[in-house]
C-alpha cells in the first residue's frame, strides 16, 4: 500500500525543512533579494545544531545555536552583498560553496570523521504529543507527535502571513521589493529592510537546518541540505511569493519526497530513478508555471490588441 496515513505524516515531516527554506527565500524575495544562499545557511545550521547538541547535551540549545550560526552566515552575505555591493547571485553561489567546504572541514577537524557524524551522545528533538488533539481519533494521529520544529514551522507560516500583510513593517518590506525608489521617497530605509530580511532568512534557514540534523534524523552528513534550499526557492515561486502558497508548495514537494522514500523501501525499481523524482517534479512544475505565465501574457496582449482595434473602429 502506497497511500495511507503514514504517507501524510511523512509528507508533513519532509515538507518542514523545505517550508523553512521557502519562508526564508520568500521573505527576502519580498524585499527584492533573490537569496540562493539559503541552501548554504541551512547546511551550516544543520552542522552547528549537531555541534551544539553534542557538546551541551540539549537539542534545544543546538537549535538556538544553529539559528545563530546561520545568522552569522546571513550577516556575511548581507555585509558583502548589501553594504559592499557584491552581486547577489554570485555572492549566493560563493556562500553555498563556502558552506559546503566549511562544514566538511569542520566535520573532520572537530569530530575527526569524514562523510557523516552520529553518536549516542547526540540528543535529537523529542516528539511532542499535543495535549487534547492527540486523543481525537483521526486528527490526533495526523497532527500530533511531531518534533517541535514542525509546529514552529506551521506557526511561522501564519505569523509571516500576518507580518507581511497586516503589519506596518511587513508592508514596508514589500514596498522595498516592489519599488525601492518609491519606498525610499516614503522614508523607508531600503537597505535596512533588506538587511532585516536577510537576517530573518538566516534564522529560518537555521531552523530548517537543525530540523534536518536533529529533528528528521539525528546525525550530520556532508551536503545534508541536498538542494532543499533551492526547493524552497521553487516552492516560493510555486506559491507566488506568499507565505501560505509557499507552504503549500513545500507540502507538494514533501509529498513527492515521501513517495520516493516509500517506493525505495519497496524495491520495485532502481533507487536512483526514485531519488530523481522530487527534482524532476520541480523542473516540471516550474515549466508549467512559466508556461501558464507565458499564456497569460499572450492572452493579455491579445485582449489589448482587440480593445485597441475596437477603439479605432
Amino acid at each position: 500500500m502506497v497511500f495511507d496515513l503514514e504517507l501524510i505524516r511523512s509528507t508533513l515531516r519532509l515538507a518542514t525543512p523545505i517550508a523553512f527554506a521557502g519562508l526564508a527565500t520568500m521573505l527576502t524575495i519580498q524585499a527584492g533579494i533573490v537569496n540562493i544562499a539559503v541552501e548554504g545557511m541551512m547546511l551550516v545550521g544543520a552542522f552547528v545544531a549537531v555541534v551544539g547538541s553534542y557538546y551541551t547535551g540539549s537539542a534545544i540549545i543546538g537549535v538556538i545555536l544553529s539559528m545563530l550560526g546561520s545568522m552569522t552566515l546571513a550577516f556575511i552575505f548581507a555585509l558583502f552583498s548589501l553594504k559592499w555591493k557584491a552581486h547577489i547571485i554570485i555572492m549566493g553561489i560563493a556562500i553555498n560553496i563556502f558552506a559546503n567546504y566549511l562544514t566538511v572541514y569542520l566535520l573532520r577537524a572537530i569530530f575527526g570523521v569524514a562523510g557523516a557524524f552520529s553518536s549516542p551522545d547526540l540528543k535529537g528533538l523529542e516528539m511532542i504529543k499535543l495535549p487534547v488533539i492527540d486523543n481525537v481519533p483521526i486528527l490526533g494521529s495526523l497532527v500530533s507527535g511531531y518534533s517541535i520544529l514542525v509546529y514552529i514551522c506551521w506557526i511561522l507560516v501564519l505569523l509571516s502571513h500576518i507580518f507581511l500583510y497586516k503589519t506596518k513593517l511587513g508592508i514596508h518590506l514589500r514596498a522595498v521589493g516592489e519599488n525601492p525608489a518609491a519606498a525610499e521617497v516614503m522614508g523607508i530605509r531600503c537597505n535596512e529592510m533588506r538587511f532585516f530580511a536577510v537576517m530573518a532568512s538566516g534564522a529560518l534557514a537555521g531552523l530548517g537546518g537543525s530540523y534536518l540534523s536533529l529533528g528528521h534524523l539525528t546525525m550530520f552528513t556532508e551536503g545534508m541540505s541536498a538542494g532543499r534550499g533551492f526547493m524552497g526557492l521553487a516552492a516560493t515561486i510555486f506559491g507566488m511569493f506568499t507565505p501560505i502558497g509557499t507552504f503549500l508548495g513545500s507540502i507538494l514537494f514533501g509529498l513527492f519526497d515521501s513517495i520516493s522514500w516509500r517506493l525505495q523501501g519497496m524495491q520495485i525499481m532502481p533507487v536512483q530513478f526514485l531519488q530523481m523524482l522530487p527534482y524532476a517534479i520541480i523542473v516540471i512544475i516550474l515549466m508549467t508555471i512559466s508556461f501558464r505565465e507565458k499564456w497569460v501574457r499572450a492572452m493579455t496582449a491579445k485582449a489589448n490588441r482587440a480593445a485597441l482595434e475596437k477603439a479605432e473602429e
Partner: peptide, 22 residues
C-alpha cells in the same frame, strides 16, 4: 589537516573579490 580548508579559503577570496566596492 582536512583538505577542505582550501576550498573554504578560496570561497572567502571570492567574497572579497565579488565585493568590488571594498
Amino acid at each position: 589537516i582536512p583538505r577542505e580548508l582550501i576550498g573554504t579559503i578560496v570561497a572567502i577570496i571570492i567574497f572579497f573579490m565579488a565585493a568590488e566596492s571594498i
